[in-house]
């Protein structure tokens, strides 16, 4: 164990960070170190292990019922097809039934849609939804997209928190089987985004098409075709649940 004065001074900063006595600027400096230096992260984790047991003497406080729904909302989880993961909420059961009903209706509409000639859009009064999980190669779902054919719009919801490089936009593409990608639009990676679906896009939606997301210059690809790395892809399959 090294206990030189300098090591102690450096290690003390991490202790002070964990204890919570540093001012905002000094805290930010240590937080930056943690993010960039494994050694700093390890030293801070060690101090956390040493000091966090102090909290064991505090009484627990049950959160109000509204906190969890707000967390879900902040994470962008509260869209129709996510009702399955509600889990322990008392509302799970009715939701599951509603969800099951919605699935049946959506599958029916999808079947009707697929039987119609390509480009056929159901008339008013029909519900027609398609969904896609836009995933990285490692299987992590970055976004879910729900296509509402009646409203002619696509809703893109972040499922994880993909780190988009600074100065890059995320652009959504529709790739019909064997054809060139068509831009759906630039969207905010970390927020729910609603984009309009043009006639051209609607005509190409279906189980043989796919969605893809690429990094592009701010504002989107200057060429009309993807110019940056494709970070995630998703098949358009089935209907919303």
């Amino acid at each position: 164990m090294s206990t030189s004065f300098e090591d102690d001074q450096n290690n003390l900063r991490y202790a002070e960070y964990v204890l919570g006595v540093l001012d905002a600027d000094a805290r930010a400096a240590v937080a930056h170190e943690i993010a960039t230096s494994d050694e700093a992260a390890a030293a801070v984790a060690l101090w956390q292990r040493r000091l966090m047991p102090l909290t064991e003497l505090l009484p627990e406080v049950a959160p109000s019922a509204g906190v969890w729904p707000r967390i879900r909302q902040a994470l962008g989880w509260d869209v129709r097809r996510e009702s399955r993961s509600v889990g322990f909420w008392g509302t799970a059961r009715p939701w599951q039934w509603i969800s099951l009903g919605a699935t049946a209706v959506a599958v029916f509409c999808l079947v009707m849609l697929l039987r119609a000639p390509v480009g056929g859009i159901p008339g008013a009064g029909h519900i027609a939804l398609m969904v896609s999980s836009i995933r990285q190669d490692n299987g992590v779902t970055d976004w879910t997209a729900t296509m509402d054919l009646d409203r002619k719009q696509i809703v893109v919801v972040p499922a994880s928190f993909p780190a988009v490089p600074i100065g890059r936009s995320t652009q959504l593409w529709l790739i019909p089987a064997g054809k060139a990608p068509i831009s759906v639009g630039v969207f905010a990676a970390a927020n729910t985004t609603v984009l309009p679906l043009s006639k051209e896009l609607l005509a190409q939606l279906g189980p043989t098409a796919a969605l893809a997301v690429s990094y592009e210059p701010p504002g989107g690809s200057p060429t009309g075709q993807p110019t940056g790395m494709v970070i995630a892809k998703g098949a358009i399959s089935g209907a919303a649940t």
């Binding site: 909290t55 505090l58 009484p59 627990e60 406080v61 049950a62 959160p63 906190v67 969890w68 967390i71 989880w77 996510e82 993961s85 509600v86 889990g87 322990f88 992590v140 779902t141 499922a159 994880s160």
Partner: peptide, 20 residues
């Protein structure tokens, strides 16, 4: 990315964190 596990984690740990 397991949301059910996250929900369970919240249920088990939130009272302790809120106490803090």
């Amino acid at each position: 990315g397991d949301r059910a596990a996250f929900a369970d984690l919240y249920r088990r740990t939130a009272p302790r964190l809120l106490g803090v």
